[in-house]
Nucleic acid binder design. Sequence first.
DNA 1: GTCTATATTGCGATAGAC
DNA 2: GTCTATCGCAATATAGAC
Lengths: 200, 200
Amino acid sequence: MEKDTRLKLIEAAAPLFAQKSFAAVSVRELAQAAGANIAAVSYHYGGKEGLYHAMLEYQFEPIAEALERIQTMSSLPPAERLGLYASLVAGVHHRRPYLLRLVHAELTSPTSGFEAVVKKYIPQIFRFIHQALEEGVAAGEFRPDLDIGLAVISLAGILNFYFVAKPMARQLLPASGLSDEKYVSQAFAIYLNGIRREKP
Amino acid sequence: MEKDTRLKLIEAAAPLFAQKSFAAVSVRELAQAAGANIAAVSYHYGGKEGLYHAMLEYQFEPIAEALERIQTMSSLPPAERLGLYASLVAGVHHRRPYLLRLVHAELTSPTSGFEAVVKKYIPQIFRFIHQALEEGVAAGEFRPDLDIGLAVISLAGILNFYFVAKPMARQLLPASGLSDEKYVSQAFAIYLNGIRREKP
DNA sequence: GTCTATATTGCGATAGAC
DNA sequence: GTCTATCGCAATATAGAC
C-alpha cells in the first residue's frame, strides 16, 4: 500500500507552498499532508528546498510539453498563435491548479526556485508571444505603433491575473459569474480587439 | 538624532516584506534594517504581525486618499473614470513602490494582513471600476455583451501585472524599453480599445 | 525505505537595567 | 524609549535502529 512517497510528497507540497509561501510551510506540515514521515523529505529530496524545486519542475511539466508542440506552429497566423497561448493558460490551470499562484509568488518574492526553475520557462513563453506580435505588426494586422515588449506583458497580465485574484474575486462576484473559460475567452477578445489595427 | 523609530521601522519593513514574504523576514532583520533594537518592534507594534499590518496601512494611504477624491467624480464619462484608475495605479506605484507587490503577495498567499487590511480597500476599487463599466455599457459606449465583473478583473490584471513582473521583465526587455508611464498608457489604450463598441 | 529520537540553530517575544 | 540578556519554542536536518 506504500504508493510512491516521492510523488505523494510532491502532490501534497503543491497546495501548501502555493497557498502559504515557501517560508511559511514547515517540513513537518509537508510530511503530514503527504502521509509520510518527517525524515522522508530529507531522504528523498535532500530537504525542504529540494522538494520545492522538484515540485516546481513537476508543475511546469505541461508547459514544457506545450512549448515543444508549439514550436511547430510558427506557420499559423499571429492572432491564432496568441489564441494558442490563451488556451494554454486555461488548460494548464486546469491540469495544474497551483502553477500560476506558485509562479506569481516567485515573481513577487523570489526564492532559490526562481533561478533554478522558473527562469528556464518564462523566457520561452515570452519569446513565443513576442514573435507572434512582431509578425502581426509586420503583416499590418496589429497596430503599427505597438510597443511589442510591453504588449507581451499586457497579454500575460490580462490572462494570468484572474487566476491569482480568484479567491478575492469569489467575494466580489456572484459565484455563478466565475468561469475560467469564460474569463479567458473574454479577456483574450478584449486584448486582441485592442491591439488590432483600426479599419480605415 | 533619534528620528522616529516607529516610522523608520515601517519604512524599512516595506521592501523586506515585499521582496521576501511575511514569513521569510525575521524581527532581527527588520530591526537591523531600521537601525533599531530588536525589542523596538514589540514595544511599538506589539510584534512582527503588528508592524506588518501598520506597514500595510501606511502603504494604502495614497489609495485611501484617492478613493475619497474619486467619489466626487461620478459625473465624469465612464472612459475617463477608467482612465482615472489607470493613472491612480501608475501614481501609487510611484509614491509607494512596494504596495502592488505586497498586495499581490497577499492575493497569492494571504496572511492575517489580508483580512485586516487588504480586504478593506480592494472592494472599493472594484466597485469604482464596476460602476464605470456598467454606465459605459448602458450608454452604448462599451460592448453590450461585456461581462462586467470579469472585465473589472481584466483591467486590474492588465495594469497591475506589469509592476509585479518588472524584475523578470528587466531580463527580457532592453532596459530602455521599461517605462511605467509608457506601459500604463499603452495597456490602458489596448483595454479601452478592446471593450469599445465597434463602429457599425 | 521508513521510523524515532535528538542535535542544533534560529525564531518571536519579554523582563528588567538604564 | 532603548538596550542586553535570555526564555521557551519550533524550525530543519540527521544519526542510527529497524
